[in-house]
Amino acid sequence: MFKFKSLIIPFAIYIILIAIGLSQPGLWQPIMYIMFYIGIGVALNNFMGLTGYVDFGYVAFLAMGAYGMGVALGYFTYLGIWAIPLGFVLALIFAALLCTAVGGVALRLRGAYFAIATIGVNEGLRYLIEGAKIWGGSEGIILSGKLRKTFGPEFANYLSTFVADAALIIIIFIASVITVYMINSRVGYALLAVREDEDAAKVMGINVTKYKLIAFFTSATIGAMIGASAWTLKLTYVFPEDVFFIHYTVEAIVIVMLGGAGTLLGPVVGGLIYGALKYYLSVILPGFQLLVFAPLLLVIVVAFPEGVVGFVKKKLQERGIIEYIT
């Protein structure tokens, strides 16, 4: 059975956004700002949405990705252009290492205990890097000079604009395909059972630890790719206090819940609403945006407790036309 029909709507949203960004001068950066939020939503959803576990330390995976790329570009600059693929590989490795360390221990905890343990990991890692002066410590890794020296100013500029944005877009497309694949496979059904009743799931033959780790790993590596491209490549620096900033985790959680956890379209719509509103409010009400933003989010979350997409899906399910929405 062909199960990828549900990719049509999110792909259409991405393409329309990109088209708007390319055709309207001055709108490309705002569009990429929204794409970043869609990206972290889609990435976190692969874990939080599918398992029901709230990971408050999620940003640590983006940080691992940012450091992976930062280390490759900062310390292996002599590799020239090959430092970039190396950066993505290192991003993957760093995220996978952290994933193994955290997943093996923290995933045995449930509910609030898991959430708190993951915050601890995030903060601990940040202080480790700052305190032990790893990779520049609290001064971070600054790449703009090195990049300009190695690649020339034009190509360095091209890297941080076109390459970084293109990479983020490709990652988001791939991440959506992965989500659809997961939801419709045995993994998706196993995680559905885990989310609803972990103990009943075990008795029914589901190796809950294995499936939780699969989701954790998938989500972490996508997050690391986003960190490597949308942060290090685009901004050309890595500061620990930025990349471990818990604020991004909270934003990702809000996006997932706003759109609808565990659905494919949810984090896309959530990221779109969140990113667009945040940007627009900061333009028309600079300084007051959060004051307006917070109550607005409250209203949406109260009105649609299952997220916007969750709500629509439920309405459509009653009429039996849900093929296109997952």
Binding site: R186, M204, G205, I206
Partner: peptide, 9 residues
């Protein structure tokens, strides 16, 4: 019910 069929014997 399908989850039962997937992960049981």
């Amino acid at each position: 019910v399908a989850i039962g069929a997937m992960f049981g014997r």
